[in-house]
């Protein structure tokens, strides 16, 4: 059997990244608040899915908050992102109002896309979000293309594409990395490696000793970071974004992370090993960052609890709004197929 890439729980993998320090511009409570918001939003969606209130499939990102927030809060307004099927956290970090996002996931009229698209197809272009995506790897060329547009215009935006370890084996990724490299496009490739593509372990279907080598082969500066550590993710993104902004082209960031809820809401996760689950849960991005903030005396436990209470209230209100919202009017069925 050939070698396959390894992931360490709560760590960067075989290549040890330097410990991430706080940078001058870091809004540490903002990072914390956004991660907590995503967690509570996702857990609310899990309950709604279990109750049968969410049409279709819902893929939750609880456990991956540090990769969502560490990357997106390092960007500027106007920058683009392209997300994937596990994309609620990306939408929230990019500024989507959670009441409208919840309404979209429930297929309700006030949803971001009029309730017609749902969890996997949220396109939120006014906020630079090229969309969550139902096709594995589908967002990769969209982000690279937005970067191409920015370069052609000379307007200075950059683009980030998020994808999971499942997309590592899509040819599209390799095509786009090659083009981004030859054209020095301002794009950052971010692999949120949560260890499983649907129900299959990443190692079982992914050849080679390292994931980041898949960027290095194109000459793209590539790094592996602890995807449970929001500061590590943020630091890597700031470096990559800086390279993109000054015309030095693409970067590749591999974030080792963990999805608590399995592939989709309701996944029983029989394929996971209990010990492995315990190791990753001990590295929970919210718990570890809360401890860091308290240890560094940036916030007290009480202040963090107050943030969480405020977030819980916001999510509760958003869910109530979405549940009470009307269904799309039947005459909108065929709207917006063509202009």
């Amino acid at each position: 059997m050939g070698a396959s890439p390894k992931r360490a729980a709560g760590g960067a993998g075989s290549k040890k990244a330097p410990p991430a320090a706080q940078d001058a511009a870091e809004d540490c409570l903002g990072l914390y608040r956004t991660m907590v918001l995503i967690r509570h939003f996702e857990e609310s969606m899990r309950r709604l899915a279990a109750a049968g209130e969410t049409p279709g499939l819902v893929h939750l990102c609880s456990g991956q908050e540090a990769t969502n927030v560490g990357v997106i809060l390092a960007l500027r307004e106007g920058d683009y992102i392209a997300s994937h099927h596990r994309g609620h956290g990306h939408c929230i970090a990019k500024g989507a109002p959670i009441d409208l996002l919840a309404a979209e996931i429930l297929g309700k009229a006030p949803g971001i896309c009029g309730g017609r698209s749902g969890s996997m197809h949220v396109v939120d272009l006014p906020r630079g979000n090229l969309g969550t995506n139902g096709i594995v790897g589908g967002g990769i060329p969209l982000a690279a293309g937005a970067a191409l547009a920015a370069r052609a215009r000379g307007t200075g935006e950059i683009a980030v594409c998020f994808f999971g370890d499942g997309a590592l084996n899509q040819g599209l990724l390799h095509e786009c990395m090659n083009m981004a490299a030859i054209w020095s496009l301002p794009v950052v490739f971010v692999c949120e490696n949560n260890g499983y593509g649907e129900f299959t372990a990443m190692e079982d279907v992914t050849a080679g000793e390292s994931v980041q080598a898949r960027g290095e082969v194109f000459g793209i500066p590539s790094v592996t970071v602890d995807g449970m550590n929001v500061r590590a993710v943020r630091a890597a993104t700031l470096a990559a974004a800086q390279r993109a902004r000054i015309g030095e082209g693409p970067s590749f960031i591999v974030c080792n992370t963990w999805r608590y809820g399995g592939h989709h809401a309701g996944d029983k996760q029989d394929y996971k090993d209990d010990e492995e689950t315990k190791r990753w849960e001990a590295a929970d991005p919210l718990i570890t960052f809360a401890k860091t903030l308290v240890d560094e005396k940036r916030a007290s436990r009480d202040e963090l609890a107050a943030i969480e209470a405020e977030v819980v209230a916001r999510v509760k209100a958003a869910v109530a709004f979405a549940r009470a919202a009307p269904q799309p009017a039947i005459e909108t069925l065929e709207a917006h197929v063509h202009g």
Partner: peptide, 8 residues
């Protein structure tokens, strides 16, 4: 266009 409800 359809997925974005006409916004994109």
């Amino acid at each position: 266009r359809y997925m974005s409800n006409g916004a994109a």
